[in-house]
Amino acid sequence: MTDRECGRTVLVVEDDKDIRDTIAEILQDGDYHPFVAANGEAALAALRMADPKPCVILLDVMMPVMDGKTFRIEQRSDPALNDIPVVVLSAHADATSAAAEMKAEGFLRKPVDLDKLLDTIEKWCVAD
């Protein structure tokens, strides 16, 4: 779905270690290459160093240090990062509106349905 070479890499930005590690583990089992960050600030640092840039970012909304909304603003203002698609992970029933507000490419509600998660990731990782 993307014209960049992204090598099935996925950035998981999530402050809860258990959720973060479980998603990374599952992605690894699915032959993806996940890397993780615990908040928006760490995610920006990791993104700027990453090569190749990830196919998609899984982004939590409420996080300490820098939340998902701020991260998204920073990411969109950086020409090197602004074309990486973002899928919002939200615990709120109003995930739809949060995703719309953050101009994200998609959203997943917590608790996450694993099949849905993998389908979504796969969609962004398919090479042309």
């Binding site: 809860d16 258990d18 959720i19 479980t22 998603i23 583990e25 599952i26 089992d29 615990a91 917590k110 608790p111 996450v112 349905d113 694993l114 099949d115």
Partner: peptide, 21 residues
């Protein structure tokens, strides 16, 4: 409810991972 949801999300994901395997 918010507090309950985070550990539940992790648990749910782990179980689904297991189920998948």
């Amino acid at each position: 409810a918010h507090e309950l949801r985070t550990p539940l999300t992790a648990l749910h994901l782990k179980l689904q991972g297991l189920e998948r395997k």
